[in-house]
Computed example of a mutant assay.
Amino acid sequence: MTLLCTGTAPAAAQTTPSSDDPLAVVVAVAGQDITDRTVTLDPVRAVDLDLTITNTGSTTRSVRLVRVSGEALALDFFTFDTTLPFTVPPRSQVTRSFPLDVRDLDGQAIGLLPTSVELLTEDRVALGSAETVVDVRGSLWSVYGAFGIAMLALAVVLWSSTLVALARHRLPGNRFRRALRFLPAGVATGLVAVVSLSVLRLVAPEPEVEIPLVLGAAVVAMLLGFFTPHPAGPATVREDATAALPRPVP
């Protein structure tokens, strides 16, 4: 086999910016970049956001909205849209500042939440974004707090019903089926752990935290179900007693 190497550059050089390249967005609060740090959002006062947007493409990009949203477990728990029309010419940089009114946060979230700041077009197409973690000083009875309380109640109900069935010898005799019976309680426990760590401001519910916690709790619950003793119920006891009786000699 012969390899032919030439010095000809590719038809489309990789360094050539595309007109569809996303805008580079830097967001600052109180003069500090929000990337890789935790930003506190207090519902009692607005926060000023400073945006620095760089367009490395070859076409002018038109921004219509700035969206600030926080999510956990793939669910959005707060979203703020601010109309801020401006354009970013090709190969240029612009800056914009605006106050973000977060008074509704008190009833929407509490604790640490991964948050994104997105630039959207008129048709709600994302042009660029910046990511951070916010510490929401909201109420425990907010939507996110109520979600955590509901998950806790669900976990208690699931564990109670499973353990009662275990005590009454009503679980399946097959170990794998018993493990599956414990699975929902384990998943609910993992969700409670994710929300609790967030509300207590210990760990933000990011995917690299959420997935291991939920999967880990599910696996532990299934192992508990798998290794529980065989459910020797009344019917099984009667069968064992009958088998133990001496058989008449013919």
Rank of each mutant, 00 (worst) to 15 (best):
A165L: 10
V88D: 04
E210D: 15
A218R: 03
V47L: 12
V68G: 00
L191N: 11
R124W: 15
P89Y: 04
D50A: 15
G186P: 11
E208C: 00
P234A: 15
T35G: 06
A28V: 01
P234V: 11
P99N: 09
T40A: 15
R61F: 01
I53R: 01
V249R: 14
L51G: 02
W141G: 01
S161K: 10
T132P: 00
V156T: 13
A188H: 07
L51Y: 04
R181H: 11
V117K: 02
M222Y: 05
A24R: 08
G70N: 04
T132M: 10
T82N: 06
R170K: 11
A30C: 00
V39A: 09
D20N: 14
V194P: 14
A153H: 08
L105D: 02
L41P: 01
V94S: 04
P207G: 08
L166S: 11
G128M: 10
P248Y: 05
T83A: 10
T121N: 12
L166R: 13
P10I: 08
P43K: 06
I211E: 03
R177H: 07
L140Y: 14
L191E: 04
E131N: 12
Q32C: 00
E131A: 13
L171W: 01
P248L: 08
S69P: 01
P89A: 09
T95D: 09
T132W: 03
L245S: 09
R247G: 09
G31C: 06
G107N: 11
T228A: 15
E210I: 12
V25G: 03
A232H: 04
P172F: 00
E122S: 12
G70W: 02
F80T: 07
S116P: 00
L152K: 02
M151Y: 02
P234D: 13
R247L: 14
T35P: 00
A243T: 09
D240Y: 14
D240E: 15
M151R: 07
A155T: 10
V134P: 00
